[in-house]
């Protein structure tokens, strides 16, 4: 769907994107990770035509002109920081509907799921909403659009845990669109994605495709040792079908290969407890109990 060929972007001679080459296919749901300054937001801005750049960005084999409104009609975007738009929320939704084909009924549904009553906020200036409300409205607009690619730049940064969970569910439900999600919380978006791309200094340093490497039916065997007994951690692993020894410190069990990111997400929440961890591929061993 999108071909990025030797994309470079420099600011004051410093390369923020350095001959980055990448392709995004229909159905790809990508977690884009990397430290601050890795080039994630710059990549998004190049994709959206906000930045001039060297190299080529092409949508479905197009000539790769910098800004193509036809291509943008297929892309929905949620920025890292909500813009301080002065227009009322209702006007923004109308703009999205008339200018980008967003479905008003669908936006109403989505906003409702996220705990926003559009009738209540439609006359309020967008910039007067709380950070979380703004983010929810932007997510509502993006998900209400008929987009083939959704670009989210740290989309859940302003959301409370409950709204974050609903947001993840909403993204999971949008099976018809590809996604490119920049997030510092890999564990959060891990259940959504089938590909992880890590960027560092403007280059792709990891492009891990779950579809290729972690085929359905394959399993990995995990062995974990923690520093002290921890009931919530034990319960979490029990849910994955893990067994524990008498000390309550060592756990072992199967991890479906396709669920690896989600499993690592669970471990990440208890990272400080973990003394030792191994994860070995067992291609043919189908365990008796799986999550």
């Amino acid at each position: 769907m999108i071909t990025i060929d030797r994309l470079s972007k420099r600011f004051d001679r410093r390369a923020v994107l350095d001959e980055l080459t990448l392709s995004i296919d229909a159905g790809d749901r990508i977690a884009l990770i990397g430290s601050n300054g890795a080039g994630k937001t710059t990549l998004f801005r190049c994709l959206l035509g906000h930045y001039g750049h060297e190299g080529r960005v092409g949508f479905d084999g197009s000539a790769g002109q910098r800004r193509d409104a036809g291509a943008l009609a297929r892309v929905a975007f949620v920025p890292q920081l909500p813009p301080p738009l002065r227009m009322p929320v209702g006007e923004l939704l109308t703009f999205a509907e008339k200018g980008a084909g967003a479905d008003p009924a669908l936006m109403r549904d989505i906003a409702g799921k996220m705990g926003i009553d559009l009738d209540e906020v439609k006359k309020r200036p967008f910039y007067r909403l709380s950070g979380g409300q703004k983010q929810k409205i932007l997510v509502t607009v993006a998900l209400g659009r008929n987009a083939d690619l959704m670009i989210f730049d740290e989309p859940s940064a302003n959301l409370d845990p409950a709204a974050r969970a609903v947001f993840i569910d909403l993204l999971a439900a949008r099976t018809d669109a590809s996604m490119l999600i920049a997030s510092h919380r890999l564990e959060e978006v891990a259940p959504l994605v089938n590909r992880v791309i890590e960027m560092d200094r403007g280059r792709v340093v990891l492009d891990d495709s779950v579809a290729d490497r972690l085929r359905a039916g394959d399993f990995r065997r995990a062995e974990i040792e923690i520093s002290a007994p921890h009931e919530p951690f034990a319960r979490a692993l029990e849910g994955w079908g893990f067994v524990t020894d008498a000390s309550g410190l060592r756990f072992s069990g199967p991890v479906p290969a396709a669920e690896t990111f989600r499993f690592l997400g669970v471990l990440a929440r208890h990272g400080s407890l973990i003394e030792r961890l191994s994860l070995e591929e067992v291609p043919q061993a189908a365990p008796e109990k799986v999550n």
Binding site: D103, D169, L170, A172, A173, T175
Partner: peptide, 18 residues
């Protein structure tokens, strides 16, 4: 992945868009 299947909470959204 299980999370990628249609969410029972929002069964209509994806279909409507499609």
């Amino acid at each position: 992945m299980n999370a990628m299947s249609s969410d029972p909470l929002f069964p209509q959204g994806g279909d409507r868009i499609a």
